[in-house]
């Protein structure tokens, strides 16, 4: 009976020690995340990049067709026929404007999407930090911002699962 009591007390102490260890460990931990990896593998980033790719492909083919048509017209152009030259120049101007508008729109989309990705990812990372009581979450971008960190405090994979879960609405 006394032996059993001893076992229960020991188990109780072990549980308390583990809890205390986790509590203090969580409170004091400084961790880091591989920025590039999390950005590339974040579901929202993948979705928006695919969307951007579709847009680029669609309009790139339009611009390419216009370019081919312009070259064709240019090769057949009679430089002495002023009316034809005027027509050709108007078409060329149209092609340039179309290309410009495509690149401007693609850049705007890219900027908008990046802002959305960064906004959502930052808010999820902040939640992760608060939930796990991390003191600091550093971002390693491979450009010297973080020169060395022990692999043991790399939470990239944990963070990736967390942000993707949060994005999915869980």
């Amino acid at each position: 009976m006394l032996k059993q009591k001893g076992i229960y007390i020991s188990l109780f102490i072990i549980v308390i020690v583990i809890q205390l260890f986790q509590y203090f460990k969580g409170n004091e931990q400084i961790v880091f995340i591989d920025n590039q990896k999390i950005f590339n593998e974040f579901k929202m980033a993948k979705e928006l990049n695919a969307k951007l790719e579709v847009y680029n492909l669609k309009y790139k083919s339009v611009i390419d067709s216009l370019d081919i048509e312009l070259t064709k017209r240019g090769s057949k152009l009679d430089v002495d026929d002023t009316l034809e030259v005027k027509k050709y120049l108007r078409f060329k101007e149209y092609c340039t404007k179309e290309a410009e508008s495509f690149y401007t729109k693609a850049n705007e989309l890219n900027t908008d999407y990046n802002t959305q990705i960064i906004n959502q990812m930052n808010s999820y990372i902040e939640e992760l930090g608060k939930e796990n009581h991390y003191q600091i979450i550093l971002g390693a971008n491979g450009q010297g911002g973080l020169l060395y960190a022990n692999k043991g405090i790399d939470i990239t994979d944990i963070a990736l699962i967390y942000v993707n879960n949060k994005y999915e609405g869980n």
Binding site: M44, L48, D112, N119, Q120, Y167, E168, G169
Partner: peptide, 18 residues
């Protein structure tokens, strides 16, 4: 049920609520 809301005002973009 997955509710999808696309924000265009505050720069948040697509949000999923499961």
């Amino acid at each position: 049920l997955k509710l999808i809301v696309e924000d265009e005002v505050f720069g948040v973009g697509k949000m999923n609520f499961l």
